[in-house]
């Protein structure tokens, strides 16, 4: 009798534990359907890009030349503010002069003297020309300081320098045309959206086109690498930002 009682108590104990865990499980099971029902009742707002997605899909389905394609825009460099004079105005700003202020009156020097940059000591102060054997008139149009001039005499209006640079940099232009040179942003898939590409002068200064050195500003912080630096690294490596 006593024997049975103890067994019963133990069984009751286990039973309670099981019931508790069962209740917990069913409760949690019940949670998910309730959540999903709630979701069904409140219709989800369509994602903002749903429309464009649908467009993409239909483009894929219709696939081929008929699919509408977005354009590729080449960044146009901002017009030059002019030439720095080396003077500073009353508010501490560099004084710049639009090209045409002088070039509408002053006859530009012949290319030979410009090559030696003699004239740049008087005008265009601070301008460094490190671009092969080019002179001013190799690119700038001596007739009109607002435009450029190709080697065959064609005048290039505005700031579109792609053709101008491509006269000498053919391989780079070929790479550029196939996306292998020059940065870009936007869409790889032109059926889904437009793309914006850098022009030559987005990255290369026309007067000093060599891509300058940079300092890496973002480094992984890894305790194992820190340890290694501590043992064999230079003092520079050990200074962490």
């Amino acid at each position: 009798m006593r024997n049975r009682t103890i067994v019963l108590i133990a069984a009751a104990g286990i039973g309670t534990a099981l019931t508790v865990s069962w209740t917990w499980t069913t409760k949690s099971r019940a949670d998910s359907p309730r959540q999903s029902r709630a979701v069904e009742q409140i219709p989800m707002p369509p994602p903002p890009d749903a429309a464009s997605n649908a467009a993409t899909m239909s483009n894929e389905n219709t696939a081929g030349a008929s699919a509408p394609r977005y354009s590729v825009t080449i960044r146009t460099p901002a017009p030059s503010p002019g030439v720095t004079t080396g003077l500073i105005d009353g508010q501490g700003r560099l004084v710049t002069v639009p090209c045409a202020t002088c070039h509408s009156m002053v006859e530009p020097p012949p290319p030979a003297s410009a090559l030696g940059l003699q004239s740049l000591k008087n005008f265009h102060k601070g301008l460094v020309l490190e671009h092969g054997k080019l002179t001013c008139a190799s690119c700038h149009n001596p007739e009109d300081s607002r435009t450029y001039r190709l080697a065959d005499g064609t005048v290039v209006e505005g700031w579109d320098v792609m053709e101008l640079c491509s006269q000498c940099h053919g391989p780079q232009r070929t790479d550029y045309d196939h996306g292998a040179h020059g940065g870009m942003t936007g869409y790889w898939d032109l059926a889904a959206g437009p793309r914006t590409r850098n022009s030559c002068t987005s990255c290369h200064s026309p007067h000093e086109p060599a891509f300058g050195p940079m300092r890496p500003t973002f480094k992984p912080i890894d305790r194992f690498l820190l340890d290694r630096d501590h043992h064999e690294g230079s003092p520079e490596d050990m200074t962490r930002e």
């Binding site: 940065g183 942003t185 790889w188 898939d189 990255c203």
Partner: peptide, 23 residues
């Protein structure tokens, strides 16, 4: 990004244009 047709973030950030992505 890329499954919606956009370029990866690392490509857009590259200042030297070293990265190329596509199908």
């Amino acid at each position: 990004r890329t499954r919606e047709g956009r370029l990866p973030a690392c490509l857009e950030a590259c200042p030297t244009g070293a990265r190329v992505f596509g199908n």
